[in-house]
Amino acid sequence: MDARRFAALAQAYGGDLRRWPEAERMAGTVFAASDAGKAILKQAGTLDARLDSYRVDAPDKALHSSILQAAGRHLVQRRRQWFWWLGLGLAGIGLAGAVAGLALVTIVTPEVQPDHYVLDANVTAFGDAGPDAENGEENL
């Protein structure tokens, strides 16, 4: 690593080599031991020290609880939705079963002839002896 690349990395990532790209950290550590390396890191470290002064307070308990409560509400809502979809699915399966059953019964069950049709004498070979039959007998 040359001084130019070392300086570019320090300008971008600061003076702490732990923030530097992993692939260049080792070469950077070697260069950091040189006088030029030390001077570059010192300069970058000045800004780092100022940036470090800006700390953010840890989240307070109220925010923590509020987020957990929202999570609880979301879980309840999701379970309800899940049961609703489950119910809808079961109802759908039931309905599909009923339709399939009805179709099966319609196909498999033989057609039942109505009583009056079975007993109707006109459907036999001898039954429909109407006026034409009488005329035939006369012609003989």
Binding site: A8, L9, Q11, A12, Y13, L47, L51
Partner: peptide
Amino acid sequence: ALESLLARGRRSLQ
């Protein structure tokens, strides 16, 4: 591009 943003940002802050 990230390195460029970082370097320009740090220069501006400085």
